Computed example of a mutant assay.
Amino acid sequence: MDFSDLTPLAGGWSGQTFVADAAGERSVVRIYPPGRRDDAAPEIDAAVLRLVRGLAPVPDVLEVRRAVTAAARPGLLVTSFLPGERGDLLLPTLDDSATAGLGCHFGELLADLAGMPTLKAGPFVDADLTIGDFGVTDGLPGFVDVHAGSLGWDPDLLAGLESVAAEAQSRLDTVGRTCLVHSDANPKNMLVDPETLTVTGLLDWEFAHSGHPFTDLGNLLRFDRRPPYAEAVLAAWCDRRGGTAAEAQSLARAADLWALVDLAVRRGENPVADQAHEHLLAIARTRDLHGLP
């Protein structure tokens, strides 16, 4: 592949995804710098795409090259180019009716993923999608304790966060199964047909793992909480997976607390981390999973 013909793909923070044009055919090229992830990362991402093919709209895998950190050789994953407009760009242009329609499609897609069972929680560690261990003990309270120093908060705020984390973990423990989790399922990573509002692509699976069934729903509803959108997402999700919208929303907020903490300690790296920090601050101040800045 001639890397001089690559054009950076808009929308990502890593600067490692490109569009390639060859003989009139477009493809997407993701570069894996040595040492950023495990050498097997391109193979793992490719295996996840193949796993969900037919269940979710994902690109075809065209080429995979394993990274070799010892030789300073980057990994490579080449996939087909999917049509559609990024969901985060399309959503602000829609009226309430269309917003609800798109929210319905998003909810259905994530409900389908949440119905894909796994045997335990953990990261994928190889091309066979063997499930490893996150190395986290004591659930959310333990995770908060590990990262408390990095947040740089005063004791009252930390106490508020610890209280919410304990409540959230109790709620999450009521769900006794795990499933495939995309872990970055937000409109920026979804391509949409602007005419039909159907999802044409769910992209960027680098954080995929086996985890809690409400994780992706929490990610999707983290920042955009407009009633027409959120209500449609929750209704569609519950139509597929059962339960009530109120229960699903609370579980989604609880599951998303893991990501909010992880992002908040990295504030300053990108706008999403900064926004997550503000949300986490509001949750800690109000001692409410649904707290807003």
Rank of each mutant, 00 (worst) to 15 (best):
F3C: 12
F3E: 14
P8F: 03
L9D: 06
L9F: 01
A10L: 10
G11M: 11
W13S: 13
D21I: 10
A22L: 12
A22Y: 12
G24M: 13
E25S: 13
R26M: 10
V29R: 02
D38Q: 08
A40F: 09
A41L: 04
E43Q: 14
D45T: 09
V48P: 00
L51N: 11
V52S: 02
V58T: 02
D60W: 06
E63H: 14
V68G: 08
A71E: 15
A72Q: 15
R73W: 03
R73T: 12
G75V: 02
L77D: 08
V78S: 02
S80D: 06
F81M: 11
L82P: 05
L82M: 12
P83S: 13
E85M: 15
R86P: 02
L89F: 09
L90I: 08
P92A: 06
T93N: 12
D96Q: 13
A100T: 04
A100G: 07
H105F: 02
H105D: 12
F106T: 00
F106R: 04
D112I: 03
L113R: 00
K120P: 03
K120L: 09
G122I: 01
P123S: 04
D126E: 10
D128E: 11
L129G: 05
T130P: 00
I131E: 00
D133N: 13
G135Q: 07
D138M: 06
L140Q: 10
L140H: 10
F143M: 12
H147G: 00
G152H: 05
W153M: 07
D154H: 02
G160D: 06
G160N: 09
L161D: 01
A165Y: 01
A166Q: 11
A166E: 09
Q169G: 02
L172P: 07
T174Y: 01
T178E: 07
L180K: 08
S183W: 06
D184Q: 05
A185S: 04
N186S: 08
K188I: 11
V192L: 01
E195P: 00
T196D: 09
L197M: 10
V199P: 04
L202E: 09
D204E: 11
F207S: 07
H209F: 07
H212Y: 09
H212W: 06
T215I: 07
L217V: 08
L217C: 05
G218T: 03
N219Y: 03
D224E: 15
R226I: 07
R226T: 13
P227T: 15
P227F: 13
Y229E: 00
A235G: 09
A236S: 15
D239Y: 07
R241T: 06
T244H: 14
A245L: 10
A246Q: 15
A246R: 13
E247I: 05
E247M: 05
E247K: 09
Q249I: 12
L251E: 00
W258A: 09
A264Y: 03
N270F: 03
A273V: 05
D274W: 01
L280H: 03
L281D: 12
I283H: 00
I283L: 08
A284W: 04
T286H: 15
T286E: 15
T286V: 10
R287P: 08
G291N: 11
